[in-house]
């Protein structure tokens, strides 16, 4: 087994905090001005999720966290394996795809996708509960992911 570089768990949580604000804003705009009004932010989420799935190393959240946030925090008590949060990003990405592509056909999918992304990101950022990570063992058990 190759050695995997462990990460500061607060990094993904910080990113989830920004994601939860963006997705809640997308949701609110959809309800205020019609479903399509939430679309630009949904596209932004799509880009951010795609970025963290394909090029996690120089993701803007990551850079902000390392440059501005982490120096102000204490040393982490525990490092964690990056695979579950990366998997969680993929789950987020699939909802962003649903919102971005599906939203063009059925605009109601925009607030629906935004709501799912918000719940997952909010639980992670404010309660330290990573839905995607939690699903990881279960999904592997049922052979859905490897």
């Amino acid at each position: 087994m190759t050695e995997i570089k462990r990460i500061d768990p607060r990094g993904p949580r910080f990113g989830a905090g920004i994601t939860s604000v963006l997705s809640l804003a997308s949701f609110a705009l959809s309800f205020q001005f019609g479903f399509i009004a939430g679309y630009p932010l949904m596209v932004a989420l799509f880009v951010l999720f795609a970025w963290s799935v394909f090029l996690p190393k120089n993701h803007p959240y990551q850079l902000i966290f390392q440059k501005l946030v982490r120096p102000r925090l204490k040393e982490p008590t525990e490092l964690e394996d990056p695979r579950p949060p990366q998997f969680a990003q993929k789950v987020g990405f699939s909802f962003a795809i649903l919102g971005t592509l599906g939203g063009l056909v059925v605009s109601a999918l925009i607030p629906i996708a935004a709501a799912f992304i918000f719940i997952a990101a909010f639980l992670n950022a404010f309660f330290g509960f990573c839905l995607g990570c939690q699903m990881y063992l279960g999904l592997r058990r049922f052979g859905i992911i490897r």
């Binding site: 809640l24 949701f27 309800f31 607030p111 918000f118 719940i119 909010f122 639980l123």
Partner: peptide, 10 residues
């Protein structure tokens, strides 16, 4: 209401 509802759900 919808936004606060979602927040409350979280």
């Amino acid at each position: 209401i919808a936004t606060l509802g979602l927040l409350a759900l979280g």
